[in-house]
Amino acid sequence: MFNKITDELLPILAGLFVATIFGFSFLFTKEGLEVLAPFHLLGFRFAIAAIILTVLKILGIIKVNFRGKKLGVLLLLTTFQPVAYFIFETLGVQITSSSEAGMMIALIPIFVTILAAVFLKEIPSKQQVIFITISVVGVLFIIVMKGNLDVKGQLKGLFILLGAVISGGIFNILSRKLSLKFKPVEITYIMMVIGAVVFNGISIIQHIGAGMLKQYFQPLENLNALIAIIYLGVLSSVLAFFLLNFMLSKIEASRSAVFTNLTTVISIIAGVVFRDEPFYWFHIIGGGLILLGVWGTNYYGNYEPKKVVSRTYKT
Rank of each mutant, 00 (worst) to 15 (best):
N261S: 09
G163K: 12
I266T: 05
G169L: 05
S256L: 01
W281H: 10
V185T: 14
F182T: 11
K214W: 06
A210P: 13
L239I: 15
K177M: 07
G195P: 08
I284D: 14
I284K: 12
L213Q: 04
L180A: 13
I208L: 14
V197L: 15
M212I: 10
F217I: 05
S167T: 07
L213S: 05
F171W: 06
H283P: 09
V234A: 15
V265Y: 06
Y216I: 06
P219Q: 07
L262E: 02
L223C: 00
V265L: 12
N224S: 12
L161C: 01
T263Q: 15
I285R: 01
L232I: 05
A253P: 02
S254K: 03
P219L: 09
S179R: 08
S249R: 08
H283D: 15
N172W: 04
E277I: 06
P184M: 07
F279S: 06
G288M: 07
G211S: 11
F171M: 13
S167M: 14
V234G: 01
F241M: 14
I269N: 10
K183E: 14
V193I: 15
G168L: 03
M212W: 01
S236Q: 11
L239W: 10
M212R: 14
G195Q: 08
I268M: 14
S249V: 00
Q218E: 15
T188Y: 11
V197P: 00
Q206E: 15
V165W: 02
F241S: 06
I190V: 13
Y189D: 03
G201P: 00
A210S: 14
E186R: 02
E277C: 07
L161F: 09
A240R: 04
M212K: 14
I227G: 00
I204M: 13
N222E: 04
F217E: 10
L162H: 12
T260H: 10
L161Y: 08
G169T: 01
I170L: 09
G201D: 01
L232M: 13
I166M: 09
F182L: 03
A164K: 01
L226S: 12
F259A: 06
L244E: 05
Y280M: 09
V265I: 11
S254N: 13
L239D: 04
K177F: 05
A196E: 11
W281T: 11
V198N: 07
L220A: 05
L262T: 00
V197F: 14
K183M: 08
S175Y: 03
L232Y: 06
I251H: 02
V193M: 07
I205L: 12
H207R: 10
E221L: 09
A210W: 02
I204T: 06
F259I: 05
M191P: 00
R176A: 02
F241D: 00
F171K: 07
S267T: 12
G286M: 13
F217A: 11
A196R: 11
F199P: 04
N261T: 07
L178S: 02
R176N: 12
N172K: 03
T260L: 15
L174M: 11
K177Y: 07
